[in-house]
Design a protein around this nucleic acid. Structure first.
Length: 277
DNA sequence: CTTACCTCCTGCCCGC
DNA sequence: TGCGGGCAGGAGGTAA
């Protein structure tokens, strides 16, 4: 599923492959993808708007339409394909943007969980209603060790749930949460209330290191893309524990286990990540 | 305040 | 082979 690094890769690719384009029209084949405003309003606002920039916050893509912004969350399986006029639509294309210069931008999403929003552009991102429960992006300057320490000390959450909580820090999903727990050598159920200042600092350092590695990985695959944009699991090659049930821990060779933490499938090494309280 | 559970969806995997 | 059931999962919602 697309987490911060995958979203960053999509943004970089859109920026490179589309640059500035005008949206001539939009087709919506599944209304529930459009979260705000109504489908009718969405279509009306977007027509003849130019996309002047592409940005990211947490796991959200932000299309800068000068007077407005279009914000997209890919959720589980959302992806964008850039097509030329003659190419056929995918059967999972739920929203199709007709762009200038004969380009089409298809939004593909087999599970239809993704969401799109359009707002009038304002200075403060957090005033968009879709961001009202979104905390600082993992790379935001406000997301520092002291901030994480304060959040951890007043939280009842386990480390994994803390990392997944977008209200605290935005961008980490199920895959990278497992990798961060492993890098910290802490059990995913470790209560973050027990964090020391060093733990908070390490949490931030490992989070950013892992996300950056994944971004660099995604970045290197871009040049092999043709007309379509796909973010597949190339980073999986580098995953230490996630999806590795039954395999040997890369550090101690103990068998990696799968449990459920915060209702999510969670992979960890019992030996390396034993500290649990 | 927290926590537990439901909803949205489809593809895939399992057992029969 | 095919059919039913269970499962996975980000985030928002509601109930307790």
């Amino acid at each position: 599923m697309p987490e911060l690094p995958e979203v960053q890769t999509v943004i970089s690719t859109l920026k490179k492959q589309l640059a500035i384009k005008t949206i001539k029209d939009v087709d919506v084949y599944w209304d529930n993808i459009i979260a705000y405003p109504s489908v009718k309003e969405f279509k009306k606002i977007i027509r003849n708007k130019s996309i002047v920039d592409y940005n990211r916050y947490g796991k959200y893509l932000i299309f800068d339409l000068k007077t407005h912004v279009m914000i997209v969350h890919l959720r589980m399986e959302g992806k964008f394909y850039i097509l030329d006029e003659a190419e056929p639509y995918s059967k999972h294309a739920h929203v199709v943007f007709h762009l200038s210069e004969g380009k089409f931008l298809q939004y593909i999403d087999t599970r239809k969980f993704g969401k799109m929003y359009i707002y009038e552009k304002v200075e403060d991102l957090h005033s968009y209603s879709c961001f009202k429960n979104i905390g600082y992006d993992a790379f935001d300057v406000h997301c520092n060790a002291q901030y994480l320490y304060v959040q951890a000390k007043k939280s009842t959450l386990s480390l994994k749930a803390f990392l997944l909580n977008q209200k605290i820090m935005a961008g980490v999903g199920n895959i990278y949460a497992d990798e961060i727990c492993f890098a910290m050598r802490l059990h995913p159920e470790y209560k973050v209330k027990n964090f020391t200042k060093d733990d908070a600092a390490k949490c931030l350092i490992e989070t950013r290191r892992i996300l950056n590695e994944a971004i660099n990985c995604g970045g290197t695959t871009i040049r092999s893309y043709t007309s379509s944009l796909k973010v597949d699991g190339r980073f999986q090659l580098k995953l230490q524990v996630h999806m590795r049930k039954g395999e040997a821990c890369p550090v101690c060779a103990n068998v990696i286990e799968k449990i459920t933490v915060a209702t999510r499938g969670t992979y960890y090494c019992k030996k390396c990540q034993s500290k649990k309280c």
